[in-house]
Design a protein around this nucleic acid. Sequence first.
DNA 1: AGGTTGATTGTAAACGTTTACAATCGCACA
DNA 2: TGTGCGATTGTAAACGTTTACAATCAACCT
Lengths: 365, 365
Amino acid sequence: MNPGASGPALASAAPTVATPRSATLHDVARAAGVSTATVSRAFNRPDTVRESLRQRVQAAAAELRYIPNDAARALASHRSRVIGAIVPTIDNAIFAQGVAAIQARVEAAGYGLLLAACDYDLARELAQARTMVGRGIEGLVLVGTRHHPALRDLLREHRIAYVCQGAFAPAEEPACVGFDNRRAAYVATRYLLELGHRRIGMVAGIRKDNDRAAGRVEGMRLAMAEACLALPDAAETTGQAPGSWLVESAYSYEAARLATRRLLVGTCRPTAVVCGNDILALGALRECQARGVDVPGQMSIVGFDDLAPARQATPALTTIRVSTTQMGEAAADYVLAALAGGSPPAVEIPFKLVIRASTAPPPSV
Amino acid sequence: MNPGASGPALASAAPTVATPRSATLHDVARAAGVSTATVSRAFNRPDTVRESLRQRVQAAAAELRYIPNDAARALASHRSRVIGAIVPTIDNAIFAQGVAAIQARVEAAGYGLLLAACDYDLARELAQARTMVGRGIEGLVLVGTRHHPALRDLLREHRIAYVCQGAFAPAEEPACVGFDNRRAAYVATRYLLELGHRRIGMVAGIRKDNDRAAGRVEGMRLAMAEACLALPDAAETTGQAPGSWLVESAYSYEAARLATRRLLVGTCRPTAVVCGNDILALGALRECQARGVDVPGQMSIVGFDDLAPARQATPALTTIRVSTTQMGEAAADYVLAALAGGSPPAVEIPFKLVIRASTAPPPSV
DNA sequence: AGGTTGATTGTAAACGTTTACAATCGCACA
DNA sequence: TGTGCGATTGTAAACGTTTACAATCAACCT
């Protein structure tokens, strides 16, 4: 209170226009001359209120620039109209596309999207899920099937509809939408084998806590084993021992080049390499070119994901294509369906080996 | 009620364990033998409750796996602890990186991130902002300075801290964090001019409702004008008339190749081209190579943004580097600071021309 | 011993919706 | 002219927190 104020008129004349608290349901109700219940209904179940009244309510709402308070709404209705997504990282075209698709889908259904990136850290993912639960998400899309053991309990306990995107393994995780990474890598490797390659290496993503990356090397190994071929992988026991044909790399060009270098320096190097994704493949390609190893003449390369740059590279990359957009949409649809009361089925997204110019028969054949 | 139930014991024994409604503040209070106020304080202002009590509360909360209901919290405290971000598209490395940086920053400050993509549509951006306001965001980061006129009012009216990221123009929009696109394009063009180029074209992004794209062509034009050079731009009046050296393109390799083709077919084609971003530049590069136009021998190309692929291309792209991560962090910090009560200054992010192999003096000089 | 003071805790009123439930209205029908 | 019924509307109690305010308590003065 201004001590110098001499009367109510003066006192109420604040220095500037007083905070014009934004309009509430009550304000609208008063303006329209109806009860709050009617206003609420006019918005949420228009068919239950008489046309004339609804119009009056709409008019009043528009006039007051009324925006419903979703916190109150969520509190009263137990529905937040928000779903969450936790991805390993946003800064990777694969996930960016997926998130974009999810966002679009979710928005179309009237939901908001709460996003977090866990950086491939299971504990962090759990913590993020926990705060999202507090924030009232109704559904959650996760990436991959490998998660902190407490995560599933958390989601179950709070009855959150969730789905694991990017992998298909209905056995270990019924709620998933994606493709079988093992099989895809298997297919890619088979193709190389059929081309005549026998000495095949792999530049894999980092497998720790990453079922997709792990599945891809498993699939590759399986194809090799079937052909009675081994994948020298000293890496696994002795670190990156020379001669290992299985190297792991972070998802960046630079790291991939370094990793590829290790593959190239051995006295006996592979004639083909399957990469954990296109970034790795592009890095591998670049490194080969830098060291004068002709691709595909002396070295075949197959990627994974079919990102846009894979198509543009020279030579264009042979790779496994899978539509992340489709996957994201399917994931969103899954949780949306679950929220609508259905119990949607796990869906398997197709993948496809697209053969371009980075693969050819091995030199000696 | 099960009509066949014969007594309270039976009636309460539901078919399966009854919905174990998740624990509330009251439950924790009861378990710890204190009032709800104390529990609330134990969490929010730990220093105001006695050590022993706080421990009891913590224990009870842990025991009950208590997760606070943020909707209720938001309703009561008028603080949602959520900020929003609306970007043109998530599926573009530039924005993906920015979003990643914002998310990280915001999470570290205990906030959640509500994300939406408006696809370069101002009306859609406004609608998304509106629902976000309803959802209670405390702050909002926007991209660019060009917005629907109603947007600013909306944010002001609801006292939402916001910042425009990606452009620096304090005059027209005080709350911005970014760099001066005009000036950057000017610098890039100057470089080409100093190399001796006189016939310079531009593959620009679509300028409608996009101040960054528009700024970049303005800056380019300015440099040209200073050198008493014109930029033939029949495009602007007669559509994409042949001979125009200013072409617009969506941000994809394919579109960029098409656009570049238009630049290349004229009887008199430019010796250099500045591109609205690296995707466009990479597309241009690819198209030149496909048509046997040597880069940089017969055609110099400069990009914008310095995405990872720019470094990896052959020839590596000369481009304008600006750290989107830094920009995202600065944007997040800006709104966080504003929320904390400060009135942070607009911050200008530095950009830098990085010269690589895609530029050289024009052939005839 | 009585009074102050500051630290700690409890009480209860918001916050802005939704939604049972009750009340009312208009109308067809007997 | 009642009666009954469906459609429409109002009343008021949640929903789970935060927070002003009051109450209590222990310690410390005088």
